[in-house]
C-alpha cells in the first residue's frame, strides 16, 4: 500500500520534472536552429548599374564590384560589396555578365584576354564562361547574370549561386 503510494508520488514528481525540462529546453533551442528557418544575412537583389557602355572595351573582361544594402543580423549596411562580376563586351553590342565566383568551391576567378582561370584548383573557362577541358574541377560553366542596357548604361541583377553543384541554384531565395 505504502509502496503503491510512494510509486505514484515519485512518478508524478518525475512527470513534473520532465515537463519543466521540456518547457525550458525547447525555447532555448530557438537560437540554435534559427539559421535553418530564416536567413539572417541578406541583400537587396535590386538592379545594379555596372557603368556606361564606353567603359567596356571589346573582348577584354572588366571586373565590376557589386554593392548593395546588406542586412547582417540586426545591422543594415548601405552600399557594401556583396560580390563582383566580369563584363565581357563582344562584337555587335553583345554583352556577357559573369559572376567572379568559381562554381567549383567559390574562389574568385582571375581574368585574362583569353579567358578565366581559378587560382585555387585550376578550373579554366573561355571568355564566354564555358568550361575548358575534360578534367576541369568545376561542375558547371561560370554563372551568367541577367542584364539590360538602358540609356547607354549597363545594368545587372546580381544573384549568388551555390558552388560545388552541377545545377545552378541560388544561395538563398532572394526577396
Amino acid at each position: 500500500m505504502a509502496n503503491d503510494r510512494r510509486g505514484f508520488l515519485e512518478a508524478t514528481a518525475k512527470l513534473c520534472g520532465f515537463t519543466i525540462t521540456g518547457a525550458v529546453t525547447i525555447p532555448a533551442l530557438g537560437p540554435l536552429i534559427h539559421p535553418l528557418l530564416a536567413d539572417s544575412v541578406e541583400f537587396d537583389a535590386e538592379e545594379t548599374a555596372l557603368g556606361p557602355l564606353e567603359r567596356f572595351p571589346i573582348g577584354v573582361p572588366v571586373k565590376v564590384p557589386i554593392t548593395a544594402n546588406r542586412r547582417d543580423g540586426w545591422t543594415t549596411t548601405r552600399g557594401v560589396p556583396i560580390g563582383a562580376v566580369y563584363v565581357i563586351r563582344g562584337d555587335n553590342e553583345a554583352y556577357r555578365v559573369l559572376s567572379t565566383t568559381c562554381p567549383h568551391l567559390g574562389c574568385a576567378v582571375a581574368a585574362s584576354n583569353k579567358g578565366f582561370n581559378c587560382p585555387c584548383h585550376g578550373a579554366t573557362f573561355t571568355l564566354d564562361g564555358q568550361r575548358r577541358g575534360d578534367d576541369n574541377p568545376s561542375p558547371r560553366n561560370m554563372d551568367p547574370m541577367e542584364h539590360t542596357v538602358r540609356d547607354g548604361v549597363l545594368y545587372c541583377r546580381f544573384v549568388a549561386y551555390r558552388p560545388g553543384e552541377e545545377k545552378r541554384l541560388p544561395v538563398r531565395s532572394t526577396g
Binding site: A2, E10, T12, A13, I20
Partner: peptide
C-alpha cells in the same frame, strides 16, 4: 506515522510541483 514513511517521496512531489507552478 503514515506520513513519515512517505515524507521523502511526498517532499519530492511538493518540490517538483511548486517548481512546475513557478515555470
Amino acid at each position: 506515522a503514515a506520513m513519515s514513511k512517505l515524507s521523502g517521496s511526498m517532499q519530492q512531489l511538493l518540490n517538483w510541483g511548486l517548481a512546475l507552478l513557478v515555470v
